[in-house]
Design a protein around this nucleic acid. Structure first.
Length: 190
DNA sequence: AGCGGGATTTTCT
DNA sequence: GAAAATCCCGCTT
C-alpha cells in the first residue's frame, strides 16, 4: 500500500488510475485557492492502441515518456484541453487522464471560469481543465508544486471503485481502464 | 432521454 | 488531408 505520492505514482498507469480516486488537486488561480477531489480517471499506456504514446515519443507526447508526477496537457478537437498525471517509470510512455473532479473549495471561481453551474462545472476532462484554468503552459508542470499540486486524499474503499471501458475513443474500446467512485454525482457518465 | 451535427486547430499520415 | 482521450445545442421520441 503506497503511503506517499511518489510511490503511488511510480506504478503502471493501470495500477495508478484507481489509486488516484480521492486524491486532491490544489490550484492557485487569480490569487485564490481552489481544491478539488478526483472522482474519475482513465489509464493510457504505450502498449495500448488508444494511447497518444502508442506510436512512440514525439514533441507532443514527450512528457508522457518523462518521470512520474508531472502533468501532461494536450489540446484536442480544436478547442479543448485535457490533463493527465504521468506515471512511471521514466522512459515508459504512460499517464492517467483526469476525467472528472468534485469541488471541495472555491467552487464559485470554477463556475465563473466555466460559465456553468452544478455538476456541469467539472464532470468531464475538458470541462475541469477550463474550470481550473489548465492549459498548454502547464504541460510538463511538476505536480509537487503550486500553482497546481497533487496530494493524497482520504482512502477509497475497494467496493466503491467502479471499473469500466473507456469513453470517447475509437481504438482499444474493450480495455477496462476507466475507474470512478461509485455513486459520485460528479462522474461524467454512469 | 437520446441522437446528430457543428465548432475549430493541432498533430500525424 | 483526416482524425481527434470533447462539448454544446437543437431536434426528435
Amino acid at each position: 500500500m503506497a503511503s506517499d505520492l511518489a510511490s503511488l505514482l511510480s506504478g503502471s498507469a493501470e495500477d495508478v488510475a484507481p489509486r488516484l480516486l480521492g486524491a486532491v488537486l490544489t490550484r492557485e488561480l487569480n490569487g485564490e485557492t481552489v481544491r478539488v477531489k478526483i472522482v474519475e480517471t482513465e489509464a493510457y499506456d504505450q502498449t495500448d492502441v488508444a494511447s497518444h504514446s502508442y506510436r512512440g515519443e514525439t514533441e507532443r507526447t514527450k512528457v508522457m515518456f518523462g518521470p512520474a508526477g508531472y502533468l501532461y496537457v494536450y489540446f484536442t478537437y480544436g478547442m479543448h484541453y485535457c490533463c493527465n498525471v504521468v506515471t512511471g517509470p521514466a522512459g515508459h510512455g504512460a499517464a492517467v487522464l483526469i476525467r472528472a473532479v468534485e469541488p471541495i473549495e472555491g467552487e464559485a471561481l470554477l463556475q465563473i471560469n466555466r460559465k456553468a453551474t452544478g455538476v456541469n462545472t467539472t464532470n468531464g476532462p475538458a470541462k475541469l481543465c477550463q474550470a481550473l484554468g489548465i492549459h498548454k503552459h502547464l504541460n510538463g508542470h511538476d505536480l509537487r508544486r503550486l500553482p497546481l499540486r497533487l496530494e493524497l486524499g482520504d482512502s477509497i474503499t475497494q467496493e466503491s471503485i467502479m471499473q469500466t471501458t473507456r469513453i470517447g475513443i475509437a481504438k482499444g474500446v474493450d480495455v477496462p481502464w476507466r475507474f470512478y467512485i461509485r455513486g459520485n454525482s460528479w462522474v461524467s457518465k454512469v
